[in-house]
Nucleic acid binder design. Structure first.
Lengths: 205, 205
DNA sequence: TATATTTTCTACTCATTAGTAGATTGTCTT
DNA sequence: AAGACAATCTACTAATGAGTAGAAAATATA
């Protein structure tokens, strides 16, 4: 697989290495934000974890706001991708919604997804916040469309799609706050439980 | 009702006035924390909104951590009271759980309840955080007990009480993030919608 | 080989804000 | 009336942490 290990890099290798370093910064940052909170994490802290100095971070990213914004954007892209996939999938509305919800819940227990949920708008600067909102709205819209399609084909109980979307999103966002990645339940198991309860309700059938 | 309007206050009146001022500080603080976020709100800001200076706040409360801690404690007490009331109420487990959930959701759309949800542990100092956790655990325990009682009397579908509690709490906490007090839907209406969906699930019956 | 570019560092600046010192004024208590 | 106490102010201190200037080393290009 590996070529002759020349110390001289091709332009592709160099730009790849650069991207990898940028990613490493974001990965380290998002983990620390999730652990200790955005405001409790200085860029000096992040740099220290990577064994570099703060200006190195500024070499790859413009400022702290941008670091956070990139992190949430990665998380939101994952969610959007999942929404897209479910919109295009086969099956009844309920089936497609369920598949989406499972994936949605799992992403919210992952590094970048957790950051999306734990980040409140006020932490971001004005422009970042606007884009953050726009992306979140897209995901909400996609979820509502899945719900409405399910209501139309009769696989989802008729009702208020907007309120149902908030109910589902809230329940599936919450693990970002309480789930311990080191715990014994896997994200997939938790996701199944939550979706199960949301699908069937707590009243006996 | 009002006595002769003497400018001289009784000791009761004085300590009452003091408590009222302390409450006013907390009320102003919690609203600003909810609007702009804890870290984006300085005690100078809070003082300015009240038309006083920062040392006045320190005259009533020890430090910023304590201000936040008092705010979340008020919210958590309201939740705890609601839990207590439902534990002692009449009716099936499902009825009592439903009543609790409605109240729980409404509190989370109120000033202090919103603050409870929006406050992440990392914002609090070590001791405050421990007490914060302890109180939240109490509420979680109460919710699980209601669920288990309902499962025992058959009014709630059998299943994993812990996961159900997380599902319910998540869905009902979330409005603290999106609900606009100036919007047209009242908290009571929203609460009813959410609980409706949680009780029945999204699959048709 | 000379020059430009990239990566990284050390050592700053500067703004914000939590928290305090100490004075001031008014109000009780004795 | 004298001394204590409460409430509030102005004017500080001190720490934190975002962001930058400018040098140094390595690497690439001409």
């Amino acid at each position: 697989m590996t070529q002759s290990p020349s110390p001289f890099q091709t332009p592709q290798q160099r730009s790849h290495a650069r991207a990898a370093k940028r990613d490493a910064v974001l990965r380290a940052a998002v983990q620390m934000f999730n652990e200790r909170g955005f405001h409790q994490t200085s860029l000096d802290d992040v740099a220290a974890r990577l064994g570099v100095s703060k200006p190195t971070i500024y070499h790859y990213l413009g400022n702290k706001d941008q670091v956070l914004f990139e992190c949430v954007t990665i998380g939101l892209s994952q969610l959007l991708e999942a929404a897209q996939a479910s919109r295009e999938a086969q099956g009844s509305g309920a089936d497609r919604l369920t598949a989406f919800l499972l994936r949605y819940a799992e992403i919210n227990m992952d590094d970048f997804g957790r950051c999306v949920i734990r980040t409140s708008d006020e932490a971001l600067g004005a422009e970042s916040r606007a884009q953050f909102h726009a992306l979140k709205r897209k995901i909400d819209t996609a979820m509502r469309q899945l719900i409405e399609e399910g209501m139309e084909d009769g696989s989802i109980a008729p009702g208020n799609a907007k309120m149902l979307a908030f109910t589902l999103a809230g329940a599936l966002n919450w693990p970002a706050r309480w789930h311990d990645p080191a715990g014994d339940e896997t994200p997939a198991q938790i996701a199944r439980h939550l979706v199960q309860h949301l699908a069937h309700g707590f009243l006996p059938r």
